[in-house]
């Protein structure tokens, strides 16, 4: 019997960073499957290709530049890549996508020191870069074409999105284009960024993560709740100019953003109170950009802005340490 020593605790719950990232990928799978059903093989290529490229980039940077000989991929690059694909139109060209991944992984993550050190959500950094650098490609939405696997997304007819149409021609015009909007956007059979369309599938994925105790509910509830309440105020003030609150939380990137991007542990607060503040702040910014700002959708900006505040939020939302109550009852 050869004895080995080591520090306590000697047991572990066996949940590693890789396992967490794998769970996130599992949670994103339903939405990914729907995107392939709607936009065919090209979508599948974008998703698989981006994940592979992102993993390669991270591996290359860690092993060659940072000289970490024992680096083993932890799947976090795949999560970033898949989320980025989810955030762009299905018909985007492969080289635009490649550029986006490059920016997300290198500038969004690796230059800060890799996983755990990036101040901003890398996928959102990548998307913001693409949004500013390729403005036309990023708002060219292919129409939904269910179950035509061999038809490439870049060849499909283009169309408008509910939020874009509302910004351009008003809600009345948008409502004529999209019938039963709250239902179609709940199910996800609607134009938009590749992975953001289906509220239902994203919620299912999130519930899986919640059941696995990998995410907590505070940020999504605060974020979606705030958006709902503020949208309701706008809608009640002028029902013909704004979507009703239920539709408002279902369209656009809100579900994807609130459930999967804002909850990125690295770039969100650690205490429950901090998470509430983070979610409420993101909700306020999202609604303001949507209804008052120049862009049709504000989720991307909202989360990035709140990311910047995380160190401060963490600082000011420390919990009361056990044993520091002022008076014992």
């Amino acid at each position: 019997m050869k004895l080995l020593t080591g520090p306590a605790p000697h047991i572990h719950d066996r949940i590693s960073t890789r396992r967490i990232m794998l769970d996130v990928l599992i949670a994103l799978t339903p939405a990914a499957v729907l995107s392939v059903l709607m936009w065919g093989w090209y979508m599948l290529l974008l998703e698989i290709g981006s994940m592979a490229f992102a993993e390669f980039l991270e591996f290359f940077v860690m092993r060659v530049f940072r000289k970490k000989k024992d680096f083993v991929p932890d799947l976090s690059a795949s999560v970033t890549a898949l989320l980025l694909v989810f955030n762009v139109p299905a018909g985007i060209s492969w080289w635009t996508m490649t550029t986006g991944i490059l920016v997300a992984i290198i500038i969004g993550k690796e230059i800060f020191g890799g996983i755990g050190n990036n101040p901003f959500n890398p996928a959102l950094v990548g998307r913001l870069f693409m949004y500013i650098s390729f403005p036309v490609a990023m708002i060219t939405w292919p129409a939904v074409d269910l179950f035509h696997f061999w038809k490439p997304a870049y060849d499909m007819a283009t169309t408008a999105t509910p939020l874009g149409e509302a910004k351009l021609h008003g809600v009345v015009a948008a409502s004529q284009l999209f019938h039963n909007l709250s239902w179609t956007s709940f199910l996800g059979i609607i134009p938009g960024s590749a992975g953001e369309t289906s509220a239902l599938l994203l919620i299912i994925g999130f519930l899986y993560l919640w059941w696995r105790k990998i995410v907590s509910y505070e940020i999504p509830v605060a974020y979606i709740g705030t958006t709902f309440v503020l949208s309701a105020i706008f809608w009640l003030a002028n029902p013909s100019a704004y979507y009703d609150p239920l539709t408002s939380i279902m369209v656009g990137g809100l579900m994807l953003g609130a459930l999967f991007m804002a909850t990125d542990p690295v770039t969100s607060p650690v205490t429950p109170r901090g998470k509430w503040i983070f979610g409420i702040g993101a909700g306020v910014i999202t609604v303001l950009i949507r209804y008052i700002g120049a862009y049709p959708e504000g989720v991307n900006f909202a989360i990035i802005l709140m990311n910047a505040l995380v160190p401060f939020i963490n600082q000011f939302t420390k919990r009361r340490v056990f044993g520091t109550v002022k008076e014992n009852v």
């Binding site: 024992d70 020191g113 690295v266």
Partner: peptide, 22 residues
């Protein structure tokens, strides 16, 4: 007891949640 190698903290707040002393 085989311990996996230490990697970067991802601020997943699991330790914050687990700490009985807050």
């Amino acid at each position: 007891v085989n311990k996996m190698t230490e990697t970067n903290c991802i601020r997943c707040y699991r330790c914050v949640e687990a700490c009985p002393t807050q």
